[in-house]
Amino acid sequence: MSDRPTISPDDSGKAAEYVLGLLPDAEAREMRARLASEPALRAEVLAWERRFATMAEQEVAPVTPPASVEARLVTHLFRDDARSRWQWSGLWRGAAALAMAGLVAVAVLVFTGGPGSRDEPDFTAIIAAEDGSLQLAAALDLDSGQLRVSRQSGSVADGRAQELWLIAGDAAPVSLGLLSAEAETQVAVPEPLRALFAGAVLAVSDEPPGGSPTGAPTGDVLAIGVIEEIQA
C-alpha cells in the first residue's frame, strides 16, 4: 500500500528533509530543480506533507484565537475595494504561472473590473456532478448582473458543448449561455432573470456544439447546484 513504489529510500528521506526544511542550502536547491521534472518525487514530497500534517492534526491541541485576529483580518482583506481588485489580478497571475509551467491548461481572461463591481457576490452555487466528474463554482453580483462560473474539475467533451441553465421553481429552464471550456466563463445576466436567483437551481446540460437547438435542455444533465444567498 505504498504511495509510489518507485521512490528509493534515499529520495524518500530527502523528500522528508525537504518538507521539514532540514536540507542544506545546496541540496535544497538541487531538490527544487529535480521536483520540476520528477513527478514521483513531487508525489513523495506531498506524501510527507500529508504524514506530518496528520501528526500535527492529532497531536496539537486547538487554541481559540482572540476575536481581534478575525477583526483585523476582515478589516485588512475586505474593507478596501481597491485591494480586493488587486487580489483578483493576483489570482490570475497565479493561474498564468501555472499555465506557463504547463501544469494546467487555463486561458487567462483579462479582468477589467467594472466600477463598484468588486463587492462580495450576492448569490453563489456549487454546480457539481454526483460522481465528482464535473464541478463548477458560480457567483452572481446582483447589481452588475455579472455571473462568474469557474471550472474546478471536469472538462467539455470533444465535439460537445455545456450549457448553463437557471431553473426557478416549476418554470421551464432558462438558458444562461454556453460554458467556456476554459477556467472561467462570465455571463451577463439580464435584470429580469437576476430576480429569479433566490432559491433557484443552476444546472449544466450536455448539448451539441452551439448549444441546445430547441431552447430547452436536450442532453443529459451533467451537474446541478442549489443557489445560496450570501448574507451581508
Binding site: F78, W88, E120, P121, I126, A138, A139, R148, S150, Q152
Partner: peptide, 11 residues
C-alpha cells in the same frame, strides 16, 4: 471552493 470565488461568508 467558494473562497476561490471571493466569497467572504465562506472565508
Amino acid at each position: 471552493a467558494r473562497i476561490v470565488l471571493r466569497d467572504r461568508a465562506a472565508f
